[in-house]
């Protein structure tokens, strides 16, 4: 009880400090459904006009639904590939004594810390040569490659917490190395795998620079580039309420995923499961 009373001032202070943010979010939502007189703060009419991009393809650049599907394909395939490769690569790095293991470990840390933007021109040239420029596949490959060091590193952390005796016990019990991994080790890194799946999906969902530079065409555009079009295209008069509506549409899946999976996401920062 006493702890609650003492925390009251802290809660009050935090409320005041975070109030501007809350107000901003509230107005973002409110503005998408209303019109407001210039110079006034309070909205004066309800409208769905700002959401017309949902059915009117001429508002933005191409159909929002094509972009949504693209974003979904982009985010889920990067997430799946990153998780699948991390799952196996991290096991090898954590458990197997293969040549140049130290080199690979160091390389992963360096790549993890490497700013993506510095590679963008080289990547552009490579994709151009391969004929993958301005395709969704090209962006997926690049995003996957850049996301992998993080994924491998996280999964290695989870594998490292699994006691090696468990694997040895499995081998003594007659199981093959693969079966030991599949039946005994995998269930124990499963929280890490779930977190990595969600995390890399969200990272793909919010990716902006790579699609902007490597897939500029309207056929392969994703939601982030669809949204940016309203700000970046000089020929358009900026319609902030429209921008907010598209932004909200773009953010809703992310918010939902966070709400549903927040516990699993916390695992990735907790450093793995215990015992």
């Amino acid at each position: 009880m006493t702890a609650n009373f003492r925390s009251l001032p802290v809660i009050a202070l935090l409320t005041i400090l975070s109030l501007p943010l809350v107000i901003m979010y509230v107005f973002t939502v409110v503005d998408t459904f209303t019109n407001t007189e210039p110079g006034s703060l309070m909205p004066n009419e309800f409208t769905t006009w700002h959401w017309r991009f949902l059915w009117d393809d001429t508002v933005g650049r191409g159909s929002i639904w094509v972009s949504t599907v693209n974003t979904f394909i982009f985010a889920s395939s990067t997430s799946l590939i990153v998780s699948a490769v991390s799952l196996t690569a991290a096991y090898a790095l954590s458990r197997l004594d293969f040549p140049a293991r130290g080199f690979f470990l160091a390389g992963i840390i360096i790549l993890h810390a490497f700013p993506t933007i510095t590679l963008i021109i080289a990547i552009f040239l490579i994709l151009q040569m391969l004929g993958l420029f301005d395709t969704l596949i090209g962006v997926i490959i690049v995003k996957t490659a850049l996301e992998l060091p993080f994924g491998i590193w996280i999964m290695k952390g989870f594998y490292d917490t699994v006691p090696w005796e468990i694997e040895m016990a499995g081998v003594q019990d007659g199981a093959s190395r693969f079966m030991v991994w599949r039946k005994l080790v995998l269930p124990q890194v499963q929280p890490g795998l779930a977190a990595l799946l969600i995390f890399s999906f969200l990272s793909g969902w919010s990716e902006f620079i790579l699609p902007l530079v490597l897939a500029p065409g309207s056929n392969s555009q994703v939601l982030s580039t669809y949204l940016a079009y309203f700000l970046l295209d000089d020929s358009l008069e900026v319609d902030f309420n429209l921008f907010k509506s598209v932004g909200l549409f773009y953010a809703v899946p992310v918010i939902l995923i966070y709400l549903v999976f927040q516990k699993k996401l916390m695992n990735i920062y907790g450093g793995g499961s215990k015992g």
């Binding site: 468990i166 016990a169 005994l184």
Partner: peptide
Amino acid sequence: PSQQRNVGVVFQNYALYPH
């Protein structure tokens, strides 16, 4: 290989499968 030796081992930390 270990799998074909038919040896039972009890490890110091028991190594039970937690899941």
